[in-house]
Design a binder for these strands. Structure first.
Lengths: 182, 182
DNA sequence: GTGGGCATGTAAGGTGTTACATGATTCT
DNA sequence: AGAATCATGTAACACCTTACATGCCCAC
């Protein structure tokens, strides 16, 4: 059996911020937890239904014209479940990184080819850094103004710090490869 | 359908270093690619068999006493397959990080509780840093002595740089949470 | 003699993605 | 009118891990 899924908790967590529909949850994840957690529709909708079945969330169907909109609201049992999980020790996922895997075996190709991948990665990181930096700035302001966003801030800080390091690593690696690879 | 698996390439890659049995490959991965790529027996053995079937590797069964030992050797078709993949653009995996997920929703618990997770993570990182640093030192020596290990070095460098950054981030985050969380 | 490392493999089962199906509403 | 967005959901399928099954060999 595989490692216990954390999807359920990611979804109760989202509902702990405010009541939401599946569609909104998807958007919300794409906009704020995307760099460390994201889920597809194939997970969100069934999980939300199960949450309601297990009384961890309460379903309220709103009508938008003739179209329904299913808004889920966390229950006290749901909050309890979330807290219990938050207190549990963090489990580690074996991370996979295809760039590093390719580099590890790059003796088999020319240095210009392997450097191309690294340069591309640096570009990608720079784009992400721009994005995260803006969010970071706004969150720092919010936190200083007394809003309770420290926890959002620390997750974004992880993003900015790590991509900055990756950009550094790209530079160092290119130098090393240029100097020492055949 | 899910993203195309890279398992096959990880295994041909390993065979590009030297002929190996499944058992050795497992050990080898645990010892050197573990921080960015690892595989279980349930993947390695069937993949190796398929590689032989597809003529990407050649199987030689050695006898150790009465016990067989299946050593796989990369073929030229295998090398070609590996090179083609090495030249392809890197695909990104959506990384999941349970610590960040927990922190994101940690308004729901006390700051001492959330800080506990971060401290634990810092400890874990420090252990990894020790481990990686040793390997890094040895590889730097090798590279300076003209051995072709630059590519191994850059992957280890990614490890050390990133965990160092994570340790920094832990410190910063603890401060921020202490100062601003309720 | 027994525990641990060597060595190969399979079965079961959960996880999660992609792609599809469907249709209303709103913006250009 | 047509495209984009809102909105919900399912089916098929690949992927990967865990756990098990099996048995030899060697050192203590």
């Amino acid at each position: 059996m595989s490692k216990k899924s954390k999807t359920q908790y990611a979804n109760i967590g989202a509902l702990s911020l405010r009541p939401m529909s599946g569609y909104e949850m998807k958007k919300m994840m794409a906009g704020s937890t995307n760099h460390f957690w994201s889920e597809s529709n194939g997970q969100i909708y069934p999980t939300l239904a199960k949450l309601a079945k297990d009384k961890l969330a309460k379903l309220k169907t709103e009508m938008v014209g003739t179209k329904e909109r299913k808004v889920y609201q966390i229950t006290s049992a749901g909050r309890k479940k979330l807290k219990d999980w938050l207190l549990e020790a963090v489990e580690h996922y074996p991370a996979r990184n295809e760039l590093l895997l390719k580099l590890f075996y790059s003796q088999n190709i020319s240095k210009s080819q392997s450097i191309k991948h690294i340069k591309q990665h640096a570009e990608d990181c720079k784009k992400m850094l721009e994005l995260y930096s803006d969010i970071e700035k706004r969150l720092i302001e919010k936190v200083k103004n007394g809003e309770r966003s420290v926890y959002f801030l620390v997750t974004v800080l992880a993003g900015t710090k790590l991509v900055r390091t990756e950009i550094d690593w790209c530079k160092d690696s290119i130098k090393l490869i240029n100097q020492y690879a055949k």
